[in-house]
Amino acid sequence: MSQRQYEILFIAEQNLGEPEVETLTNTVKGFIEKENGAVEKIEKWGKKRLAYTIGKNREGSYVLIVANCPGSAMSEVERRMRVTDGILRFLAVRIDAEMKKADRKKTIRGKKESTRRASVREKDRGFEGGAQ
């Protein structure tokens, strides 16, 4: 099965403390691992003020999870997250394709830059050669 990289950001309710958020993160991690996925990175942003209230919550704890898992697993993970209490909202985005594109762009740019530099150097050398 092909593995894909996903980025899952979820907001936990404001009345949950640090340990509760931790357990919530672990449950989400469990969902992913149950579906043959591997969690790559977990980033806790802590409590942040929401741009607008979501069901009486003025703030929420943001947690970002980067995971590698087969595409077919995500629907199940999402379904489970939807029924989990304490998660205000979540967003799962597939990032591997975008990252690959960005990387390719970067390498192309790097190559262009290096050739440009090389050509400039050559020109300089040619000029010096002509002067001598």
């Binding site: 907001i11 929401l50 741009a51 607008y52 909202r89 967003l91």
Partner: peptide, 11 residues
């Protein structure tokens, strides 16, 4: 649009 959904940016 994504940021709005996650309440990072106001609608």
């Amino acid at each position: 649009l994504r940021a709005r959904q996650m309440a990072l940016i106001p609608y």
